[in-house]
């Protein structure tokens, strides 16, 4: 009995120590080494000082890409938007399906299909400001992040989108939108 109580006591002490050791991660606000490269990917400079046209073109291209505007502060040139989209992947679903079938054949239960990606929300944040050098041109910088839910409605992935292709696509759309706005289309 005494040993049992001793065991419980040790257990409690360990729990207290373990919970006391929870610390917040460090170093997450350190500047990454490639931050200037990242700026190049996320940024384009347009040869106009008409910030108003660029801001409405940004809103226009976001609408073209089926985003809805969440917030804006035009005095600072900020536009925030988000979009809900399909995140399912046929390849991932096929593998999950066969894994489920195999485990069923083996007599065990599994739910790989439930862990497949289903929907995603992509958030975009765009900053429009005059160039620092002469103020005669306009800088546009965009950043994207996404949250992915699986079929079981659990969050399966959260990430910042760093694929240059996505950014290129956005800026191609923006160039077209600036042209369309200029021609009042």
């Amino acid at each position: 009995m005494k040993n049992f109580l001793k065991l419980i006591f040790i257990g409690i002490i360990t729990c207290v120590f373990v919970s006391g050791c929870v610390s917040t991660p460090k170093g997450f606000l350190k500047l990454p080494e490639n931050y200037l490269e990242k700026r190049q990917i996320e940024m384009r400079i347009y040869d106009t000082k008409d910030e108003g046209t660029i801001i409405s073109s940004v809103a226009g291209v976001l609408q073209d890409l089926a985003f809805t505007l969440d917030d804006s502060e035009t005095k600072l040139g900020l536009v925030v938007a988000s979009k809900k989209a399909d995140a399912s992947n046929v390849g991932q679903k096929t593998i999950a399906f066969f894994a489920d079938v195999l485990s069923a054949v083996g007599g065990t239960a599994s739910n790989n299909m439930g862990n497949c990606d289903d929907v995603q929300i992509v958030k975009a944040s765009v900053i429009i400001k005059p160039t620092l050098k002469d103020g005669n041109r306009t800088v546009v910088r965009v950043t994207f992040q996404r949250i992915v839910w699986n079929v079981n409605k659990q969050i399966s992935k959260v990430e910042t989108l760093n694929d240059p292709e996505i950014y290129q696509k956005f800026f191609n759309g923006l160039s077209k939108a600036i042209f369309l706005e200029a021609n009042e289309i």
Partner: peptide
Amino acid sequence: MQTVISTLQDLDFVVRKADL
């Protein structure tokens, strides 16, 4: 404020709200 926004973006943040 614009420099703070740039810094946040350099640190991988997505800016949600701003008020001048």
